[in-house]
Simulated assay, not measured.
Amino acid sequence: MRRLFRDVEGGPLCPQGSVVCIGAFDGLHLGHQALVRAASARARAAGLATVALSFEPLPREFFAAAAPPPRLTLPRAKVEGLRALGAEVVGLLRFDARLAAMTAEDFVERVLVGRLGAREVWVGPEFRFGKGRAGDLALLQALGARLGFRAEAIAPVALDGERVSATRVRAALAAGAFEQVARLLGRPYAIGGRVVLGNRLGRTLGYPTANLRFDGRTPPLAGIFAARVHGVGAQPWPAVASFGTRPTVGGGEHLLEAHLFDFDGDLYGRRIEVEFVARLRDELKFESLPALVAQMHQDAALARRLLGLEPQRAHA
Rank of each mutant, 00 (worst) to 15 (best):
3 R>E: 14
5 F>P: 01
6 R>M: 06
7 D>A: 05
10 G>Q: 06
15 P>R: 14
20 V>S: 14
20 V>L: 15
22 I>V: 15
25 F>A: 03
29 H>K: 12
31 G>C: 05
32 H>K: 13
33 Q>S: 05
34 A>T: 14
35 L>I: 06
36 V>A: 03
36 V>C: 04
37 R>K: 15
38 A>M: 10
43 A>D: 13
44 R>Y: 11
46 A>V: 10
48 L>R: 05
49 A>L: 09
52 A>K: 02
53 L>Y: 06
54 S>G: 07
55 F>H: 03
56 E>W: 08
56 E>K: 01
57 P>S: 13
58 L>D: 02
60 R>F: 05
68 P>T: 10
69 P>Y: 09
70 P>T: 07
70 P>G: 11
75 P>Q: 09
75 P>L: 07
77 A>N: 12
80 E>Q: 03
81 G>R: 01
82 L>K: 04
83 R>I: 08
86 G>M: 03
87 A>W: 08
88 E>D: 14
91 G>E: 08
99 L>W: 13
108 V>T: 02
111 V>F: 00
113 V>L: 08
114 G>T: 06
115 R>W: 08
119 R>I: 00
120 E>V: 00
121 V>N: 11
122 W>A: 03
124 G>E: 13
126 E>G: 02
128 R>N: 06
131 K>V: 00
135 G>I: 00
135 G>Q: 00
136 D>N: 04
138 A>D: 15
138 A>K: 11
142 A>R: 15
144 G>D: 10
144 G>A: 07
145 A>V: 12
147 L>R: 15
152 E>A: 09
161 G>K: 14
165 S>E: 08
169 V>D: 02
169 V>Q: 05
170 R>M: 08
179 E>H: 01
180 Q>V: 07
184 L>Y: 11
184 L>S: 01
186 G>Y: 11
186 G>H: 12
189 Y>G: 00
190 A>M: 07
192 G>Q: 07
193 G>C: 06
194 R>G: 15
194 R>H: 10
198 G>A: 09
201 L>I: 11
203 R>K: 12
204 T>N: 13
206 G>R: 11
206 G>I: 01
209 T>S: 02
210 A>N: 09
210 A>F: 04
214 F>L: 11
216 G>Q: 11
217 R>F: 11
219 P>Y: 10
220 P>K: 02
220 P>W: 01
222 A>L: 09
225 F>Q: 04
226 A>W: 02
226 A>E: 06
230 H>L: 13
238 P>E: 12
242 S>T: 12
242 S>D: 15
242 S>N: 15
243 F>V: 04
248 T>H: 01
252 G>C: 02
258 A>Y: 08
260 L>R: 02
262 D>E: 14
264 D>E: 15
267 L>C: 13
272 I>D: 07
277 V>A: 01
279 R>C: 10
280 L>I: 07
282 D>K: 01
284 L>Y: 15
284 L>I: 15
285 K>G: 11
286 F>K: 04
287 E>R: 04
288 S>I: 08
290 P>M: 12
291 A>K: 12
295 Q>A: 12
295 Q>F: 10
296 M>L: 14
297 H>T: 11
299 D>K: 02
300 A>I: 05
303 A>F: 07
304 R>A: 15
306 L>C: 03
310 E>L: 06
312 Q>G: 09
313 R>I: 04
314 A>I: 00
314 A>R: 13
